[in-house]
């Protein structure tokens, strides 16, 4: 089972809350897919305005945990989430919670860039439109521009906003998807291996972007690249076979992990 004892959890919670406010918190989170358990009692805090990296070998449950943070698991038939996940102290699985609002506040970027088959402008404007964030065209223009700017894409696409988003390069598409997520002013952005489909140069750009975004947003990123976790995150959580093995400050995790499995994984003995 989990290596952390309850006392240790309390202690950890305490220590992290001293450093930064807790934005999201998972308590005893379990996930079943059609009766098969994929996640076993995960306890994890996501501190505000930091980047939390979820690492671990494939199939370890890190993406599953990520997708339960904004209830994207709801869209998968036969998926059941147990335990408690809170956003600013409110249980996101409370029936009174509006999933539409939740997903607007907790945005998500996917493994493969998935721009809609629409123009660049329409891709970014989609979210603000459906949520009614902009009151008129000029406000919408502003939101689109500022989102693209924040996603470091504006200078590259400002002359071709009406061209289809699917015509961009892979890295640009992923930044477009980030801009699309930013446009609804989320508080948290979940990223599910956002660079796995990108080449090294595009990856570097997106990583740089993630670092910048940290100032305004809380970010949770799933990655299978140790270097990436080390480069962009402040905190790291290690998953294995559906259990949270260890979590803590990234520096410590990569230099002096508590758990043997973490050490093995980081040094490349399995994964």
């Amino acid at each position: 089972m989990n290596m952390l004892t309850d006392a240790a959890v309390e202690q950890k919670l305490h220590s992290t809350s001293n450093e930064a406010a807790i934005k999201m918190r998972g308590k005893d989170v379990t996930v079943h897919y059609n009766g098969k358990q994929a996640l076993f009692g995960v306890n994890l805090d996501v501190p505000e305005q930091q980047v939390t990296a979820l690492i671990g070998p494939s199939g370890c449950g890190k993406s599953t945990f990520l997708r339960s943070l904004n209830r994207m698991n709801d869209t998968i038939e036969g998926c059941r989430v147990g335990g408690e996940i809170t956003l600013d102290g409110d249980d996101v699985y409370d029936p009174r919670i509006d999933v539409v609002e939740l997903r607007a506040r907790v945005g998500m970027v996917f493994q493969k860039p998935n721009p809609f088959p629409k123009s660049i402008y329409e891709n970014v404007a989609y979210g603000p439109r459906i949520h009614g964030i902009a009151r008129n065209k000029s406000e919408l223009d502003q939101i689109v521009e500022s989102s693209l700017e924040k996603a470091a894409l504006w200078s590259e696409v400002k002359d071709r906003l009406n061209e289809p988003g699917t015509g961009l390069s892979g890295g640009q598409q992923q930044r477009l998807c980030i801009a699309r997520a930013i446009a609804v002013s989320p508080e948290v952005i979940l990223m599910d291996e956002p660079c796995s489909a990108l080449d090294p140069i595009a990856t570097a750009k997106v990583e740089e972007l993630i670092d910048e975004l940290r100032e305004n947003y809380t970010i949770v990123i799933v990655t299978h690249s140790m270097q990436q976790a080390a480069r962009v995150s402040q905190r790291t959580a290690m998953f294995h076979l559906g259990y949270l093995v260890e979590e803590g400050a990234t520096d410590k995790m990569f230099t002096n992990p508590d758990d043997k499995r973490t050490q093995d994984y980081i040094t490349g003995r399995f994964g």
């Binding site: 869209t75 999933v99 539409v100 996917f110 493969k112 721009p115 809609f116 088959p117 989609y126 997520a181």
Partner: peptide, 24 residues
């Protein structure tokens, strides 16, 4: 991925159908 992209932005099912699936 198209559906996921739309749901992740907080679109309802109806909005996803009308604005993403139907055009695609």
């Amino acid at each position: 991925a198209m559906r996921d992209g739309s749901y992740a932005l907080g679109a309802t099912k109806g909005e996803t159908i009308r604005k993403v699936l139907l055009p695609a």
